[in-house]
C-alpha cells in the first residue's frame, strides 16, 4: 500500500524527515510512534499526497504522489491531527458535502451519510451543527467523514489525542471494526497504549529517523526486559541510591522522579534492593511497554 525509500522532507533549512524507509502491507494496522516533532505528521502528509517529498522515493497505492496526487487522494481517507470539520454545516451535511468533493453522486452520499452516522453513533445529532458536539463526537465525525469514499487506506494522525478514556475506547473499537473489514490503517501516535492496542507493526521515530521497527511485542522483547521495577524516592534522595542500585538489574534508567530497573523478575530485584538498604518511597513491578522501548532507544520518555 505504501512503499517509502530514503524519504526526506525539508522545510527550508529544517529537515523534518531524514531518510525514512517504510513498507505498509494491505490490511495491516501500521503505526508511527514518536514524540512531538519526530517527523510523524510530515511523513503522513507526504503519504496523503498533500505535501511533496523533498527527496527519496514514495509510492502510495502503487502510484507516485507527485504525479498522481488526486488519484491517490480519491482512494484515501484522512483523519488530520486537528479536526477540520465544516463548522458552517450540520453533521449530515458535513458527510454529504465531503462526499461531493470526491465526485460521488448526491444519491450515493445521502445513503452513505446515513450509514456513516450509524457507524459513528451520531444519528441523533444528524441535523445539529458541529460546534456544540463533544470532542469525542467531533473525532468520530471526522473519522466517519474520512470513510465517505470507502477508502482502501485510512491515515489517522493522532486519532485520540485530547480525548477522555471512554471516548478513546469507543474510537478504538470503531477502528478495529474497520480493520476487520479489510481497511489498511496507518496511525501516528505518541501514546504507547494506543500503539499497542491498534498496531500490528510499527516504527519508532525520533528526530526525523526511524529508530526501530517491528510488532509491539517484538520491539519489547528486543529492546527491553520482561519486567520493570519502578522505584520512587523522596525529593533529593534519589541521587544517593543510583550508585547502589546500578548492579541490581540488567539496565537502569534514571528519570527525574524515579528509577527504572530492567530485569526479568521485578520482585527479586526489589528484594535485592531492600537487602542492600535501599528504601524507596514506593515501588512498582510492571511489564515492559513500548514506553520502555522508546526510553531505551532515545534516552527520553515519549510524553513529558
Amino acid at each position: 500500500m505504501v512503499e517509502a525509500k530514503a524519504l526526506v522532507k525539508r522545510f527550508g533549512d529544517f529537515e523534518a524527515v531524514r531518510g525514512v524507509d517504510v513498507h505498509v502491507r494491505r490490511g495491516e494496522a501500521f503505526g508511527f510512534l514518536g514524540p512531538n516533532g519526530a517527523g510523524k505528521s510530515s511523513t503522513m502528509r507526504m503519504i496523503a499526497a498533500v505535501s511533496p517529498r523533498s527527496d527519496g522515493e514514495l509510492k502510495v497505492l502503487g502510484m507516485d504522489p507527485d504525479r498522481d496526487g488526486p488519484r491517490i487522494r480519491a482512494r484515501l481517507g484522512v483523519v488530520p491531527q486537528q479536526d477540520n470539520l465544516d463548522s458552517e454545516l450540520t453533521v449530515r451535511q458535513n458527510l454529504q458535502v465531503y462526499g461531493r468533493y470526491f465526485g460521488l453522486s448526491r444519491a450515493h452520499v445521502r445513503r452513505k451519510a446515513a450509514e456513516l452516522m450509524g457507524f459513528a453513533q451520531l444519528g441523533e445529532r444528524a441535523e445539529d451543527e458541529v460546534e456544540p458536539l463533544s470532542g469525542g463526537m467531533k473525532r468520530r465525525l471526522t473519522i466517519a467523514r474520512s470513510l465517505v469514499n470507502d477508502p482502501e487506506l485510512l491515515l489517522l494522525d493522532e486519532p485520540t489525542t485530547g480525548l477522555d478514556p471512554q471516548a478513546r475506547h469507543l474510537l478504538w473499537d470503531r477502528l478495529f471494526r474497520l480493520k476487520s473489514e479489510g481497511v489498511t490503517l496507518i496511525v501516528t501516535t505518541h501514546y504507547m497504549d494506543e500503539a499497542e492496542q491498534l498496531c500490528d507493526r510499527l516504527v519508532v521515530m525520533d528526530g526525523g529517523r526511524i529508530a526501530a521497527e517491528g510488532s509491539p511485542s517484538e520491539l519489547i522483547a528486543r529492546f527491553s526486559t520482561r519486567e520493570v521495577l519502578e522505584l520512587r524516592f523522596p525529593p533529593g534522595e534519589q541521587d544517593a541510591v543510583v550508585a547502589v542500585a546500578g548492579g541490581l538489574a540488567q539496565r537502569m534508567e534514571v528519570l527525574p522522579d524515579r528509577l527504572l530497573l530492567y530485569t526479568d523478575s521485578g520482585e527479586s530485584a526489589l528484594e535485592r534492593a531492600y537487602a542492600r538498604g535501599v528504601r524507596p518511597l514506593s515501588s512498582l513491578v510492571r511489564r515492559s511497554t513500548l514506553e520502555d522501548v522508546f526510553l531505551r532507544l532515545t534516552g527520553r520518555s515519549l510524553v513529558e
Partner: peptide
Amino acid sequence: YAKTYDAMLATPIG
C-alpha cells in the same frame, strides 16, 4: 481557523 481548505485539499480537489 476552520481549516476548511485543508479538508478540501485532502480530497481529489485541487
